[in-house]
Amino acid sequence: MDSVRILLRLLRSRVRSQLAYPTSFALDALGQAIAQANELAVILIVFAQVDSLGGFSREEVLLLYGLAGISFGLADLAVGQLDELPRWIRTGELDVLLARPLGVLSQLVTSDLQLRRLGRAGVGVLVLAAVLAYGQVEPTPVNVLLVLVTPLVGATITASVWVMTCSISFWVVEGRELANAFTYGSTLTTAYPITVFGPWLRRLFCYAVPSAFVAYFPTLALLDRPDPLGLPHALRYAAPLVAVAAVLVAALVWRTAVRRYQGAGS
């Protein structure tokens, strides 16, 4: 219980320090929102050229994008600072964390909670609200639950992938760039129908890295439409189970990585 109280106190101080420079903070949040809106712009521009993408209409792809955007924004908020892990390792600052009586991951996560990343989730919320207002989704109790739960489950899956791929940094010096392919790459694989990717990309980036469960399968359930790929019906409700599995695997990989870490003695 004590460690939770310490972490909460740490978090409060981080939040206060970020709001100390309001102009810089506002610009930063705006930058994050624009970064997130990049893919939104691409979707809108693409649909100026065609009426459907991978068998999905503009509103359906936007529903995917909204759910994926909130998931990514929340995941980035929670574990995005793991991108700095290579620096912590290189400078030896990680050794300091290891010496403290708190978990390494929870210390890293609370080390720099960047509220500006809410800008990303904000864009997702706006798009999701617009699509729902447009009447794409039947307002049944199951759908309401799905809309509320999917971004949280999606964020859990995305954050697990983040932790897993950032662990590469314990083995490879340039792990951050490699991890980027999976973490930031997921902004593409989650926001589009997986039908646009070829079979190999789908196996690797939608199932093995379970991007398809972040937004695609829940969206099929929300729209109550058959899977164009003819996959089992149960998959569309399987995201929470996948999230649990992802967390377990991520925890295992992270533990193994931290155990084998040897400081440079600096």
């Binding site: 991978g54 593409l188 646009v196």
Partner: peptide, 10 residues
């Protein structure tokens, strides 16, 4: 690879 897949679908 991911980007080309999306644009080729267009």
């Amino acid at each position: 690879l991911l980007r080309v897949a999306v644009l080729l679908a267009v």
